[in-house]
Computed example of a mutant assay.
Amino acid sequence: MRRLKIIEHISLDGVIQHSEDGNGFPYGGWNMPYRTPEGREAVMAAHPESFDLLLGRRTYELWSEYWPDAPSDPLADRLKAATKYVVTHRPESLKWGPFEGVGPDLVEGVRHIKAQEGPDLILSGSSTLTSTLLENGLADEVVLAVYPLLLGTGKRFFADGTPACSLGFVGTTATPSGVLLNTYNAIRHLDATFAHPGD
Rank of each mutant, 00 (worst) to 15 (best):
K114V: 11
W96L: 05
S124P: 00
E108A: 15
W96P: 04
L94R: 10
W96C: 09
G118S: 11
T128E: 15
P119V: 05
G125V: 07
S131P: 08
G109H: 10
E108I: 06
S131R: 02
K95N: 01
T128H: 06
L121E: 06
I122H: 09
V142F: 15
N136G: 13
S124G: 12
V102H: 07
S127I: 02
R111G: 04
I113E: 05
L133N: 01
G125T: 07
I122E: 01
G103C: 11
G103H: 11
G118D: 12
L106S: 06
L133H: 02
L121P: 10
L134V: 14
V110G: 01
P119D: 05
D140E: 09
T128N: 06
V143F: 09
G101E: 05
T132Y: 04
L121G: 09
T130F: 13
P104A: 13
V143S: 12
A145C: 14
S124E: 13
R111E: 11
L133Y: 01
K114I: 12
R111Y: 00
E108V: 11
F99M: 10
A115I: 12
S131Y: 04
S131Q: 06
A115G: 15
E100M: 13
L106V: 15
V107D: 14
A139G: 12
L133S: 06
N136F: 11
Q116L: 14
S124Q: 14
D105I: 05
E135L: 01
A145G: 13
L138T: 09
I122N: 11
L121Y: 03
I122K: 07
V110W: 02
S93A: 10
F99C: 10
L144F: 12
G103W: 04
A139Y: 04
D120N: 14
V110E: 03
L134E: 07
H112F: 10
E108F: 04
T132F: 08
K95T: 15
E135W: 05
V102W: 03
R111W: 02
S126G: 07
G109F: 08
E92M: 03
T132C: 08
E117W: 05
L121F: 08
H112M: 09
E135H: 04
G137Q: 10
L133W: 03
V110Q: 09
P104Y: 00
A139I: 15
L133Q: 03
V107C: 12
K114C: 11
V142Y: 15
L144T: 03
V102Y: 01
E141L: 13
E135D: 12
F99A: 10
L106C: 05
W96Y: 08
E100F: 00
V107P: 12
L129R: 02
V142G: 06
H112C: 02
L121T: 05
S131F: 02
G125P: 03
L134C: 11
E117C: 00
G118K: 07
L121K: 09
V110K: 00
L138G: 03
A115P: 13
G103K: 07
E135N: 03
R111M: 00
W96H: 06
W96V: 03
F99W: 15
S127E: 11
E141W: 11
T128C: 00
L121H: 03
D140Q: 13
S127M: 01
G125Y: 00
G97F: 04
S127N: 07
T130C: 06
D105A: 01
V143T: 10
